[in-house]
Every structure is written in structure tokens, then in C-alpha cells.
């Protein structure tokens, strides 16, 4: 279980890093925002796997905060940052 959890979180971390290419390419702010959203979902999964693999239940609370913030960031972005050009 430990190996699967830690290995899985490592692979997910790699996909997040590959996802950075989309932030570099853009082209619209929304594309960059979507890459950030990917980090949100992946981040939750990574933290949950680490909580299991490292036997650190506290990381589950971090995942909870990630999940709570995920909704706020997109709403804030759409309403404030992504204005009509």
C-alpha cells in the first residue's frame, strides 16, 4: 500500500509538471486557469495518497482546504480577473 500510494503521488506530481506546458502556451487566461485547476484536483489526490502512504492524517486536512479553495479560485478568476477585452 505504501509503495502504491507514494508511487502514485509521484506519478501525479509528474503529470502536474507536464501540465505546466499549458500555462506556458496559453493562449487565453482561461487556458492557464484550467491548468491551475488541474493542480487543484491533482493536488487533492496527491495529498490524500501521501496521507495514506506516510501515515500522516494531517495531510487529509490540507486536501480538504485545497478542495474548499478550488471553488473560490475559479469564481474569483471568472468574476474579477477575466474581464472582457
Amino acid at each position: 500500500m505504501t509503495i502504491v500510494s507514494l508511487g502514485g503521488s509521484f506519478i501525479l506530481l509528474l503529470t502536474v509538471i507536464i501540465g505546466l506546458i499549458r500555462i506556458h502556451r496559453g493562449p487565453t487566461p482561461a487556458d492557464r486557469m484550467m491548468a491551475a485547476q488541474l493542480f487543484g484536483t491533482c493536488g487533492v489526490a496527491i495529498l490524500l495518497l501521501l496521507a495514506e502512504g506516510l501515515a500522516m492524517p494531517v495531510l487529509r486536512d490540507c486536501a480538504l482546504v485545497f478542495a474548499l479553495l478550488a471553488a473560490m479560485t475559479v469564481v474569483a478568476f471568472v468574476k474579477r480577473a477575466w474581464r472582457n477585452k
Binding site: 487533492v44 480538504l64 478550488a70 475559479v74
Partner: peptide
């Protein structure tokens, strides 16, 4: 957590 992420991402 699952419920939160599901609602947040579909919305």
C-alpha cells in the same frame, strides 16, 4: 472532499 471537488469542478 470528493463531494466538494465534484461540485466545484462541474460548476
Amino acid at each position: 472532499i470528493w463531494f466538494l471537488v465534484l461540485t466545484a469542478s462541474s460548476a
